[in-house]
Simulated scan of single mutants.
Amino acid sequence: MAAQNRREHLRTAFSAKVSVEHARLGSLLLSTRDVSDGGVFIVVTNAEITLELGDCVKVQVQGLPVPAPVREMVVVRKSADGYGLQFSDS
Rank of each mutant, 00 (worst) to 15 (best):
residue 20 V to A: 01
residue 20 V to I: 08
residue 20 V to T: 01
residue 20 V to E: 01
residue 21 E to P: 01
residue 21 E to G: 06
residue 22 H to K: 08
residue 22 H to Q: 09
residue 22 H to I: 06
residue 22 H to E: 07
residue 23 A to Q: 09
residue 23 A to Y: 02
residue 23 A to L: 09
residue 23 A to F: 02
residue 24 R to V: 11
residue 24 R to L: 09
residue 24 R to W: 01
residue 25 L to S: 07
residue 25 L to Q: 05
residue 25 L to Y: 02
residue 25 L to D: 04
residue 26 G to A: 08
residue 26 G to R: 04
residue 26 G to F: 04
residue 27 S to G: 06
residue 27 S to C: 11
residue 28 L to Y: 02
residue 29 L to I: 13
residue 29 L to D: 09
residue 29 L to H: 08
residue 29 L to C: 11
residue 29 L to E: 13
residue 30 L to V: 03
residue 31 S to H: 15
residue 31 S to V: 09
residue 31 S to D: 13
residue 31 S to A: 10
residue 31 S to C: 11
residue 32 T to D: 05
residue 32 T to W: 05
residue 32 T to R: 05
residue 33 R to H: 08
residue 33 R to Q: 13
residue 33 R to D: 12
residue 33 R to N: 12
residue 34 D to F: 04
residue 34 D to V: 07
residue 34 D to C: 06
residue 34 D to M: 05
residue 35 V to S: 04
residue 35 V to H: 03
residue 36 S to V: 14
residue 36 S to L: 08
residue 36 S to F: 10
residue 37 D to N: 14
residue 37 D to V: 11
residue 37 D to G: 14
residue 37 D to M: 13
residue 38 G to M: 10
residue 38 G to S: 12
residue 39 G to Q: 09
residue 39 G to K: 07
residue 40 V to C: 04
residue 40 V to H: 00
residue 40 V to P: 00
residue 40 V to K: 00
residue 40 V to N: 01
residue 40 V to W: 00
residue 41 F to R: 06
residue 41 F to P: 00
residue 41 F to I: 14
residue 41 F to M: 11
residue 42 I to V: 15
residue 43 V to W: 04
residue 43 V to I: 14
residue 43 V to Q: 09
residue 43 V to C: 08
residue 43 V to H: 07
residue 43 V to A: 08
residue 44 V to N: 02
residue 45 T to R: 13
residue 45 T to L: 14
residue 45 T to E: 15
residue 46 N to Q: 13
residue 46 N to H: 11
residue 47 A to E: 11
residue 47 A to S: 12
residue 47 A to P: 07
residue 47 A to L: 08
residue 48 E to I: 12
residue 48 E to P: 06
residue 48 E to N: 15
residue 48 E to M: 12
residue 48 E to G: 14
residue 48 E to A: 15
residue 49 I to W: 00
residue 50 T to Y: 05
residue 50 T to H: 11
residue 50 T to F: 10
residue 50 T to W: 02
residue 50 T to E: 14
residue 50 T to L: 12
residue 50 T to M: 11
residue 50 T to P: 00
residue 51 L to C: 10
residue 51 L to I: 10
residue 51 L to M: 15
residue 52 E to S: 15
residue 52 E to W: 05
residue 53 L to G: 09
residue 53 L to F: 08
residue 53 L to C: 07
residue 54 G to Q: 14
residue 54 G to C: 14
residue 54 G to S: 12
residue 55 D to R: 02
residue 55 D to Y: 02
residue 55 D to N: 09
residue 56 C to D: 02
residue 56 C to T: 10
residue 56 C to Q: 06
residue 57 V to Y: 03
residue 57 V to T: 07
residue 57 V to H: 03
residue 57 V to L: 14
residue 57 V to K: 00
residue 57 V to G: 02
residue 57 V to C: 08
residue 58 K to C: 10
residue 58 K to L: 11
residue 58 K to S: 13
residue 58 K to G: 06
residue 58 K to P: 00
residue 59 V to Y: 06
residue 59 V to G: 08
residue 60 Q to G: 03
residue 60 Q to V: 07
residue 60 Q to F: 01
residue 60 Q to R: 14
residue 60 Q to M: 09
residue 61 V to P: 02
residue 61 V to L: 13
residue 61 V to H: 03
residue 61 V to W: 03
